[in-house]
Write a protein that binds this DNA or RNA. Structure first.
Lengths: 340, 340
DNA sequence: TTGTATGCGTTATCAT
DNA sequence: ATGATAACGCATACAA
């Protein structure tokens, strides 16, 4: 039998109300003597309050859910850590949920989180979405989305990255190096981030009077396999001299394929990634990529969520974070074929 | 106001007991008609049970705590995912806690987890430990440790890797390539894994009649910085032709330093890591390392924990996982200086 | 300054 | 086949 507030009350010869008050430091009108007496007994009996019972009456669990696609994606690894840091800092705990980009899994998680009475949810949605299904999901707690758009009804806050700008700058960088025939490998167009990145790519080309070649646009998933497979299939059938990858994992897969084909990066083909995950700077050649502050994204998302929960007013609903192009070794000036 | 079991009972003209039974599928002696009636009302009113209230009476939360040093260490990234997968599979949720190898943070987490009434805890302990302090911590829930030893009193299960063997094989591999003067960069000797890895190294040398040079043994932390700093300091002051690193991060740091010094891996110096994190195979040269199935370690740990919780008998208390040497490109035969 | 009593939403026991 | 009710451990309004 765990020791309860009643046991303490009995041992200290006070009421449970009094014990409760000293436990919660609401001791304005409690004599010093009793406070000490109660604390002594608490220590002696090794009493720990039962959060469940407390939450039953306070209607707060000091717990939030964090839902992401997959922590093994290095972008989310850091994001998760940022989320956890601010959570504990504010006295909250985190339920940890991976969806594998599966919407039904995501919805199942949301429901169990609600059953567990989380105060709120921070959600990086699955890549595959379905407005029809989402409309019907009843989410009775505050929800903040990060990095990815969703169609649930009651979103209380949004953290997003300026993906358009990141893609625009990455593409412009390639154009400035003389590339005109540029592949783009990007993720599902269900995702706003993917649409924005594609839009940034197109806009950059347009602004430089380069005609968009639709066959240069490849839509897939944000993993190494997509990059590898796509470049394996393309082989010599593409005249592209540069690739803009929707994220670093795709870039890694593409580089692997190119290496196997005997092509050198960046001499034969330039590559730009997106995310700037930990590995990016460790690769050979080190990857030119668009840096996203993923730790900060997780941190800010949960911070925003908790601020909402605690009714801090003048809390903005939406935060946009600016990405930044990091030029490393995987991009260089186009070879001038006519000179040879 | 959230809708409760009472609301459903009233609307369906039954008692709360009946509703509870259909919610929990204990419908052996409930008429089909009422079951349907109740379910209909539940759907209409969008009722979701309150786990807290349930847990109050059942004394189970279907929640476990997962405590690790840092999810950003790729070894733990995978481990965490394995843990989560088995948890949901068994109907549990996971509280996610990072300690940064800080024992006091670890203990604080354990206490809040207990307050939140987790059914059990899976703990990868901090690197820095203190038996005196640990003895006094009262852990009232089942605890399973993984990867790292602790001195808490009531450990119910242990998942460990055969670190001795891994280190022995890594070192033997280097010896077989002709190396005799081998550095070891390993983590805090508070940790059994570190002691075991050092022991494996020493034993391998001994078994090959190589005298152990104590100045070849460097103790530090399991991160890139330690590897880099140590090799920066050593420069030409070491005659070593090979390095065995306590983990891959240390190896990455060491490689970085060597590169800057103009030394080539493996031609000038061979390097072996430990863990086989995702990056290892992506580096240039690809890292020879000791593979640990980190996903599986997390998975098995939480599986063991839940089995204990659910009183599955004949559950072993301890599971040992065998690591495996993966030879890649960062090791080669020693240059025979006399031949030149 | 302290204590009494009620309710939070469920499950489970025992009646009916 | 169904219902009444006690309990789970706590916080809080109100009384004393």
């Amino acid at each position: 039998m765990r020791v309860t507030i009643k046991d303490i009350a009995k041992s200290a010869n006070v009421s449970t109300a009094t014990v409760s008050k000293v436990v919660n430091n609401k001791v304005d009108d409690i004599s010093k003597a009793t406070i000490e007496k109660v604390n002594k007994v608490i220590k002696e009996q090794n009493y720990t309050p039962n959060s469940l019972a407390r939450s039953m009456v306070t209607k707060k669990t000091k717990t939030v859910g964090l839902i992401i696609p997959d922590v093994r994606n290095p972008f989310f690894t850091d994001l998760v850590r940022g989320a956890e840091d601010i959570a504990v800092d504010r006295g909250y705990n985190l339920f940890f949920c991976n969806t594998d980009d599966d919407l039904s899994k995501e919805i199942r998680y949301i429901n169990t989180l609600i059953e567990k009475q989380v105060d709120g949810i921070a959600l990086a949605g699955s890549a595959n979405r379905n407005p029809d299904i989402e409309k019907d999901v009843n989410i009775s707690v505050p929800l903040v989305t990060l990095d990815r758009n969703v169609y649930f009804s009651k979103v209380k806050g949004i953290i997003e990255i300026n993906n358009f700008k990141g893609a625009y700058e990455a593409t412009t960088h390639l154009i400035n190096l003389g590339h005109k025939d540029i592949l783009i490998l990007v993720g599902s167009q269900d995702l706003k981030i993917s649409r924005d990145r594609l839009r940034g790519y197109k806009e950059a080309l347009k602004d430089n009077n380069i005609i968009i070649n639709e066959s240069n646009i490849k839509i897939g998933t944000y993993d190494k396999e997509f990059g590898k497979k796509t470049m394996d299939e393309l082989k010599c059938n593409s005249s592209a001299t540069a690739i803009f990858c929707g994220n670093d994992l795709i870039a890694i897969g593409a580089m692997k394929s190119l290496k196997k084909q005997g092509l050198n990066v960046p001499e034969d083909i330039s590559i730009v990634g997106f995310d700037d995950i930990y590995i990016a700077s460790l690769l050979t050649p080190a990857l030119t990529t668009v840096h996203q502050p993923s730790y900060e994204i997780g941190y800010k998302a949960v911070e925003l969520l908790i601020n909402k929960l605690e009714n801090k007013n003048n809390v903005s609903k939406s935060i946009v974070i600016e990405p930044q192009l990091i030029v490393r070794e995987s991009t260089c000036k186009i070879k001038d074929k006519f000179k040879i």
